[in-house]
Amino acid sequence: MTTQFQSLTRNAFGQLDLVDAQGVRHEGVVPVRAHPLSAPDEGIALVGRDGHECLWIERLAALEAAPRALLQEELAAREITPVVQQLVSVSTFSTPSHWHVQTDRGPTDFILKTEEDIRRLPDGRLLITSHHGLHFWVQDRLGLDRHSRRLLERFL
């Protein structure tokens, strides 16, 4: 499938409807990232209710503003990954350790089982996996406050 299509809109039920290049209407399509961690804005499939790919999008940036905004909104609603804004405290500098953090969704606590649960990603991002398997983003570790950076550096 190619990135060519006639329209992408939200229906009365809040679902995405796609009209492909041939004029076929696909109701309730769902965007799925091919590489959600390493290349989140590249390789996105729009999958129909039957589970088949209706459209392949190489890059979100290649789309016009309106469909790109719809897809970004839908992806953000489906992918709930809190972003760590501040490390408030860490119980110990060995693992397992109890972390208290402030995220974009409010304060939370989790246990870091091993240092390997902090995954370094391209462009300086970190993905931290808690003992329950919940993922936390650190979008820019150098952009954190000094106290947070010092705590985090002990584990990197």
Rank of each mutant, 00 (worst) to 15 (best):
residue 3 T to M: 13
residue 3 T to V: 10
residue 5 F to G: 03
residue 8 L to G: 00
residue 10 R to C: 11
residue 11 N to S: 08
residue 13 F to L: 12
residue 13 F to M: 09
residue 18 L to Y: 02
residue 21 A to Q: 15
residue 22 Q to M: 14
residue 23 G to T: 05
residue 25 R to N: 12
residue 25 R to T: 14
residue 29 V to L: 04
residue 33 R to Q: 14
residue 34 A to S: 14
residue 37 L to G: 00
residue 40 P to S: 10
residue 40 P to D: 10
residue 41 D to L: 11
residue 43 G to N: 03
residue 47 V to W: 09
residue 48 G to H: 01
residue 49 R to L: 15
residue 50 D to F: 11
residue 54 C to Q: 15
residue 54 C to E: 11
residue 55 L to H: 04
residue 55 L to M: 04
residue 58 E to H: 04
residue 62 A to Q: 08
residue 62 A to G: 01
residue 65 A to I: 15
residue 65 A to G: 04
residue 65 A to T: 11
residue 66 A to Q: 13
residue 67 P to W: 03
residue 71 L to V: 02
residue 73 E to F: 02
residue 75 L to N: 03
residue 76 A to R: 14
residue 77 A to F: 00
residue 77 A to V: 01
residue 80 I to Y: 00
residue 81 T to I: 14
residue 83 V to Y: 00
residue 84 V to K: 00
residue 90 V to Q: 10
residue 93 F to R: 10
residue 96 P to W: 11
residue 100 H to S: 13
residue 101 V to I: 15
residue 104 D to H: 04
residue 105 R to C: 13
residue 108 T to P: 01
residue 108 T to F: 06
residue 110 F to M: 07
residue 111 I to E: 15
residue 112 L to N: 01
residue 112 L to C: 02
residue 117 D to A: 11
residue 121 L to C: 03
residue 122 P to N: 08
residue 122 P to D: 10
residue 123 D to N: 08
residue 124 G to N: 06
residue 128 I to E: 00
residue 132 H to M: 13
residue 135 H to L: 10
residue 135 H to E: 10
residue 142 L to S: 14
residue 147 H to Y: 11
residue 154 R to Q: 15
residue 154 R to W: 05
residue 155 F to T: 09
